[in-house]
């Protein structure tokens, strides 16, 4: 019984591999790589290469295999947890390059998962679809990178005013999110 189901699973996997096309595969590779890099940057360096990193790796790669599931949300939360553990637990300092990398990789993983969720693995893909998608993601990343640099510089200048900046930005973000949800509810 068990052997039969394993054989069926192997046969199904072979059929999927035989039919898969290049572009959706590359998109899924992108999800896996960005997830893995985000884990590497977020979690403490001392954890890299140990057996504790194996579940993190699996968790990072899982959304690439099942982009329609909740794996991407879970992986992003684990990355944020790692960042909190490293900065609050291990006492690592908040460095600009790490914030920038984690934010960019998380968003890249998120948007590529959104693409892979609607893109069948065996599709004949017009390249302008992926090109346009990546261009929009790049524009968003550019704007948020500028915001990150400016904000971190500001908080460094204010020296201790980080709490104030966080509160202000947080309130602004919360207002934006509320407006967004209200618009969506009105449409529905």
């Amino acid at each position: 019984m068990m052997a039969g189901s394993v054989t069926n699973a192997v046969a199904a996997a072979r059929a999927v591999t035989a039919r898969a096309t290049g572009t959706p595969f590359l998109v899924r590779c992108g999800i896996g790589i960005s997830g893995l890099l985000a884990m590497l940057v977020a979690w403490p360096v001392s954890l890299t290469g140990t057996q504790y990193f194996i579940p993190l790796t699996l968790l990072a790669v899982y959304p690439a295999v099942v982009p329609r599931g909740r794996g991407a949300t879970l992986a992003a939360m684990v990355v944020v947890t790692g960042w909190l553990v490293d900065t609050a637990g291990y006492g690592a300092s908040v460095e600009l390059w790490r914030v920038l990398s984690i934010a960019s990789l998380l968003y890249l993983g998120h948007t590529l998962t959104a693409l892979a969720a609607v893109l069948p693995y065996d599709a004949v893909v017009n390249l302008e679809v992926v090109g346009g998608w990546l261009l929009r993601a790049a524009a968003v990343l550019l704007v948020s990178a500028v915001l990150t640099v400016v904000t971190l510089a500001l908080s460094a200048d204010l020296a201790g005013g980080a709490f104030l900046v966080a509160t202000l930005l947080g309130i602004l973000g919360a207002v934006g999110a509320t407006v967004l949800i209200a618009r969506l509810l009105r449409r529905a």
Binding site: T87, Y107, T111, A137, S144, G173, A177
Partner: peptide, 14 residues
């Protein structure tokens, strides 16, 4: 933590 707010920035902007 302002860095956590900044991590949310690409999602909100996107």
């Amino acid at each position: 933590r302002v860095d956590l707010v900044l991590l949310a920035a690409p999602f909100a902007i996107g």
